[in-house]
């Protein structure tokens, strides 16, 4: 227990305390020549500024869109998993092909989709040009850009959820299916009343990874748009990076304040998950 606790303190608790402390300071990240901290204490100043910051509001909304739309990965992943859960020749190959997007790095996914959406030569642009006569450059449109990035994020996320459900489907008791079939259940009713309840552990994990994946979305925004055009596709994690470590940022305190807000939002979900796990364990 002790080594674990030590690690947890040094690598988790201490940084959290430090971030929260830093969020009460105005600091540009520099120490002076003698190695002294150059920040000034501003109390709740950073938070007061956050409330009035339109860029923060945009980021918060975008995080909300991410969270809501990312959950689409669950039904989509389940659908593909059920579709692939059959025994035909070469099914292993098909399964691995469907899993493929999750194996690719997020950065590569971002680049692929950026080209897919690229004005003038991107496949999507040419497609919309062919259909509507006027090409749509998703990443240049402030109203569509976030949804374009979420779509890119869903691609690997669906594959991830699919693999979770595929392993879950392996554990579905065949005798129960058999029994349900004898009772005349099939189609939706079979799925809803017999299969899904047995998939609950897989669903639980899938919800956790999807929610956390949505909240910490950073790579795709950074690769595809760097938050643009004019900040329309920022999410909290990217805004924090921009403010604290970006070329025009180096406002460590303000960045820390954004991080604290993001942490608070994540805590809502994390405590929910922990509470549920704790309850399940007690029931046993």
């Amino acid at each position: 227990m002790a080594p674990g606790l030590f690690m947890f303190t040094v690598y988790v608790l201490w940084p959290i305390v430090q971030s929260i402390t830093l969020s009460f300071y105005d600091w540009n990240g520099l120490y002076n020549q003698d190695g002294e901290f150059t920040g000034t204490f501003v109390g709740m100043g950073n938070y007061a500024e956050l409330i009035r910051d339109p860029a923060f509001e945009t980021s918060l909304w975008n995080n909300f869109y991410w969270l809501a739309l990312y959950l689409l990965a669950l039904p989509a992943g389940l659908l593909i998993a059920i579709f692939l859960n059959q025994t035909v020749t070469g099914i292993r190959l098909y399964k691995s092909l469907f899993f493929f997007p999750f194996v690719i790095s997020q950065v590569v996914v971002g680049l692929i989709f950026a080209w897919f959406y690229a004005p003038n030569f991107g496949l999507f642009y040419l497609l919309t040009e062919w259909v509507t006569g006027d090409g749509t450059a998703i990443l240049a449109d402030p109203d569509l850009v976030t949804f374009g990035i979420i779509a890119a994020g869903l691609w690997p996320q669906i594959a991830y959820v699919m693999i979770l459900y595929l392993t879950g489907l392996n554990n579905v008791a065949p005798d129960q299916i058999e029994a349900a079939r004898l009772d005349g259940a099939k189609g939706w009713r079979m799925l809803w009343y017999v299969v899904l309840p047995q998939l609950r552990p897989a669903t639980f994990i899938a919800v956790i990874v999807t929610v956390i994946g949505a909240l910490r979305s950073f790579d795709l925004v950074s690769i595809m748009t760097t938050g643009g055009p004019f900040g329309s596709s920022r999410v909290l994690s990217y805004y924090m990076f921009e403010m604290a470590l970006g070329e025009f940022g180096f406002r460590m305190g303000y960045g820390a304040a954004i991080a604290v807000v993001l942490f608070a939002i994540m805590m809502i979900f994390i405590s929910g998950f922990i509470w549920k796990m704790w309850r399940d364990e007690k029931e046993r």
Binding site: P119, I138, A140
Partner: peptide, 11 residues
Amino acid sequence: TENHAAIDWQD
């Protein structure tokens, strides 16, 4: 140029 917001200066 339209859609300049989505492209780099090199593009």
